[in-house]
Write a protein that binds this DNA or RNA. Sequence first.
DNA 1: ACCTGAACACCGTTCAAGT
DNA 2: ACCTGAACACCGTTCAAGT
Lengths: 201, 201
Amino acid sequence: MAEAVSAEKILDTAAGMIERHSVEAFSMRGLAEELGVAVTSIYWHVGGRDKLFDSLVDRLLSEMAHLPVEGETTVECIASLARSQRRALIERQHLLAIAHERDCTPMLFLPIQQTLAGLLAELGVTGTEAALVLRAVQVQVISSAVMQFSAVRGAKHEEEDPSLWDDDWPDQELVQALQSPTDYDALFEYGLSALLATLPG
Amino acid sequence: MAEAVSAEKILDTAAGMIERHSVEAFSMRGLAEELGVAVTSIYWHVGGRDKLFDSLVDRLLSEMAHLPVEGETTVECIASLARSQRRALIERQHLLAIAHERDCTPMLFLPIQQTLAGLLAELGVTGTEAALVLRAVQVQVISSAVMQFSAVRGAKHEEEDPSLWDDDWPDQELVQALQSPTDYDALFEYGLSALLATLPG
DNA sequence: ACCTGAACACCGTTCAAGT
DNA sequence: ACCTGAACACCGTTCAAGT
């Protein structure tokens, strides 16, 4: 007389497991066990592994439909939107990783495409050029999140070996900066403001 | 009396298989079969799956040690180096994907870090700022390659559904541009020049 | 030093059978 | 409509045994 299993609950549990132990550790059989149910009943509710992951990505997409935007100027609004999107993606790193490994990252462009298009239009940026800028911002946001996730996870077994740098390399401040861990937030801001600087106004 | 198996040959064959059929399709047993050898002998020569992938990533790193650089000005040299690195990564997309999924992408910074540092020094950019710019360029290059690979593979089952855009959206040129496939080369150049525009000189 | 087969503990998925 | 167990065809890895 266990609680009923629904597609909803299955997806929730799967997302939770993945968030706790990462995608590689996830298995259908493990999920079934966590749910207290036979593996095969998962297939009835949500289909196989692929379908399950597709559904998780769909969820991620719809969760990103309404992101907060604020700012005095139009450019600040664009920056704010980009930051919101990035934060949302990082909060759901594991789902983002799934989307990436399933080659769905371009879909992540969609939820905020229209808002971004509207803001660019306010600046007088339209047509093919607007498409280029829009996609450049999207790639900046998404790839920043994708890379940061991968890098942070890899940071554990990463010991920057200083043997590559001569001891008499002239710029020791640089060497030291490169040996401390990368600040991906700062990198993102740097790249973003470089992009926004190309805009009029 | 089959040909001798060596660690070299195993790695070559593995890389070839992965390049032809992608990582997901790769298996130890399949590799053994292709080599005409028992699975277990692979373990003697190169170790398990993880070790094998590590070795492949190491190869990728050493292959990227000497990239062509040319340009009249220092800024052009930086751009040329970035393009070389990107091209090299895209030519080895599958190895790049492995490096990414193993969280080794930051290691890809290393091969050209020193050259880049030297070029930045020529521009008078040093210390912490140089580290920031250097990493920004690296992230731009690597993430561009990572995203492009994922996007191109996903493009097959991607039909841009136009239902999201109203038929009376004012900027139809933009809508049409967004419905044609993304030009990742152009996006890369756009982002790169935005980054380089922040440099002095 | 090199290669083997058997065996273990896992997978995802299908399908006929139950209620 | 929902859940099950058995079975299939795969995995990666270990290990004792061969030459």
